[in-house]
């Protein structure tokens, strides 16, 4: 059950943490091709959000996103430059996307000024429409990128926790966590009441519901940390990354 209605499933290969998939994708291993697919699929929404918010029409944004993934992520093997000790992958990817999009916009401007046909062409209607509908008060490209990044992390962590709970027959625990906390937070759904859970899952008391909920919350937090980290001694890295993402979310309009 996807958390959001987005067409791209960013939980792809969620059993891999961010770093394990990235490192494998940049290597010569036999699973590198599959990891490259996983990484491309996982980061598509964040890259696309940046491209879209840069003023590129919806239709073209898909091509530009695809172009970036093929030319830079895979073609120039951006992933082989990624290493936990060199800093956050988010920063590396964001810088690469920013440069790619600016080059793309510059190229388009140059083409418009000096059309190959020798005549001045009007901007394509769809592009003009897309740009004019951009809300100036809405996200800047980086804020949109960060917001999609956070959604991706949450989707991945949710995927891991759900799989884990269901494999252990803890369907009630997942359901309670999902409908009481996760969906209300991520989708704005109304949280289901404690009484309804007690009735639906034949539980004994509100205390039991509360206990199930916080245990799942702890598992989810651990999964989220796992997605962000790379090893056991990187609590500080995770802490800094989270603080940075929170600051980015607070900067952007909601």
């Amino acid at each position: 059950m996807p958390l959001t209605n987005r067409s791209n499933d960013s939980s792809a290969g969620a059993s891999h943490t961010n770093w394990s998939a990235i490192l494998d994708a940049g290597s010569d291993s036999s699973t590198a091709a599959a990891s490259r697919d996983t990484v491309a699929q996982r980061y598509w929404p964040a890259i696309h959000a940046f491209v879209r918010r840069s003023g590129i029409s919806h239709a073209e944004a898909e091509d530009v996103t695809q172009g970036f993934i093929c030319d830079v992520m895979l073609g120039r093997n951006l992933l082989s430059h990624a290493a936990p000790e060199r800093g956050r992958f988010r920063s590396l990817l964001l810088t690469a996307v920013r440069n790619y999009v600016y080059d793309e916009l510059r190229r388009r401007t140059a083409t418009t000024r000096h059309p190959s046909t020798g005549s001045v062409v009007a901007l394509d209607g769809a592009s003009v429409g897309a740009i004019s509908h951009l809300d100036p008060k809405a996200d800047d490209p980086e804020a949109a990128f960060d917001r999609e990044w956070v959604r991706m992390l949450i989707d991945q962590a949710a995927h891991v926790v759900r799989e884990n709970a269901q494999s252990k027959g803890l369907d009630a625990a997942w359901d309670i966590f999902d409908r009481r906390l996760l969906r209300p937070m991520c989708e704005g759904a109304a949280p289901v009441s404690t009484e309804e859970f007690i009735k639906q899952w034949s539980l004994s008391s509100p205390a039991q519901v509360a206990n199930i909920l916080v245990r799942m919350k702890r598992k989810f937090t651990a999964a989220l940390m796992q997605q962000l980290g790379h090893g056991d001694d990187d609590q500080e890295i995770v802490h800094r990354e989270i603080a940075g993402l929170l600051a980015a979310l607070e900067r952007g309009p909601h």
């Binding site: 962590a157 209300p184 979310l249």
Partner: peptide, 21 residues
């Protein structure tokens, strides 16, 4: 009803609580 964008920060705050102290 909560705004999904603003409340997606909530899980990050859980991690921050768990790593800050």
């Amino acid at each position: 009803m909560k705004d999904p964008a603003s409340s997606s920060a909530e899980p990050l705050k859980w991690v921050l609580q768990a790593t800050s102290n």
